[in-house]
Design a protein around this nucleic acid. Structure first.
Length: 115
RNA sequence: UGAAGCAGGACAGGUGAUCGCUGGCGUCCGGUUGAUACCGGCCGCGAGAGGAAAGUCCGGGCUCCACAGGGCAAGGAUGGUCGCUAACGGCGACCGGGGGUGACCCCAGGGAAAGUGCCACAGAAAACAAACCGCUCUCCUUUCAAGGAGAGUAAGGGUGAAACGGCGAGGUAAGAGCUCACCAGUUCCCCGGGUGACCGGGGAAGCUCGGCAAACCCCAUCCGGAGCAAGACCAAAAGAGGGGCUUAACGUCAAGGGAUUGCCCGUCCCGCCCCUGGGUAGGUCGCUCGAGGCUGCGGGCAACCGCAGCCCUAGAUGAAUGAUCACCACCUGUUCCGGGGCAACCCGGCUCAGGAGACAGAACCCGGCUUACGGACUGCUUCAUGCC
RNA sequence: UGGGAUGUCGUCUAAUGGCAGGACACGAGAUUUUGGAUCUCGUUAUGGUGGUUCGAAUCCACCCGUCCCAG
């Protein structure tokens, strides 16, 4: 996959979209630092939404977590199932929060299911 | 050299490469259009967080609403003086008080002689004074030790955070501002200086008046309310009004069905089409050129102001400004080289290894305040020590 | 963005500006063969920094934390 872009069509952009995924979710996976929700959408590509609440920390911490998760998606689109809306919700973060650990968590979570 | 005080800012790592994000401009392509206008896509160019962007503690601009003139009341805020400012609870200078050897720092710093209230415990007494232990005099009892009654007194004692001036002399039965000198303080008057807070000097009075207003309160000054999710525009939908809907005709669109005893007309209901209006979802604007920044000159002790020249520097909306790699820069140790020194050692360069890289993310925009923060730099000043 | 509430022993909760009290819990002892119950004794607190005051949990200012509401 040479496509490492992340245009607006591949993001969830409204609160309604997030509530829709929450209501119609077909998978809910809880890992050490994340909660992953997935629901089938009407498009034929993946859409990603990221939720980081104030519980995680200050605006700087929340932004950095969001950037990390976006980077993981952008670099590794092949591990995400096409035609699904995926919501990544951050749980309590710690010192181990970095690209490698979060990538492994998501890869294991996605690989553990058949789509 | 060491310790300290104050102030400041295009300080808050830099450069390059690759892959991304946001919005701007441009070429080309596609769609649309009366249009050089709009939408979408590829590529290219250049831009993209802060000193606090934070907390939301004050003050404004801007927008809408209310009153459309003035006063009073209520509520809130502020509180030395003079200035600065669009304004401020901010800033500057000065005055007064307090702290520090000093540079310098801190202060809600109006009124207690307008009224009300409070001052625990202790103490006789906590505020128009009064009198527990005392001290003194007179009278009575009398065992001549003392006790009782009355009068005078506030020097001494002890309590307390605070006790109704201090010290000395005179005076007295004992005492007392009772009198006097000096000192402190209060109020008033006069003179001089200052825009003023206030300062300096002189005089008089009564001799002396406690503290708390970040207790109620009084005085002076200021304040209409809400906030860019303000507000404006476009506009699927819902709900509203009007016209129409067999065939045929006409420039276009449409779909008719049911109830009213069977039929026709009429009326009503549902549906459909068009128009008006409406404003939900959604979108656009508001949105970044502004009490703007930098430099120079001039005015002012300063805060700040004036003039001239130059510059344009983020506009997101589940919310962009990131990730990886390399090199350089910072700190510590170290190998080697060069220089200085009798030496300990110091300075510069270089190799290698290790370490630090904080607080924190624009959300309409400004002026402040407050709080968080690893370190580096610059300037001025003080104290101590040594040398000349 | 605007508006509130609140912070006291480990937990819950009192306290006019004047000795921070009570209950549960915890620790020690007594009682009991042991445990429980009971009794006695004890430890532990005013979110922080300043200020006003003779004196502050209380009054004032600024921070910190937690929770809630409206759009």
């Amino acid at each position: 996959m040479s496509d490492e872009r992340f245009p607006k069509q591949e993001r969830l952009r409204k609160r309604r979209d997030y509530l829709n995924v929450e209501a119609k979710k077909q998978r809910k996976i809880i890992t050490g630092h994340l909660i992953i929700l997935a629901a089938r959408n009407s498009e034929n590509h993946t859409r990603i939404g990221i939720t980081v609440s104030k519980r995680i920390g200050t605006a700087v911490k929340r932004n950095s977590v969001k950037r990390l998760l976006r980077e993981i998606y952008r670099r590794n689109k092949e591990i995400f199932p096409p035609g699904y809306d995926v919501v990544l919700i951050a749980r309590k973060q710690d010192k181990n929060t970095c690209y490698k650990t979060l990538f492994q968590e998501i890869k294991n979570a996605m690989g553990s299911r058949t789509w």
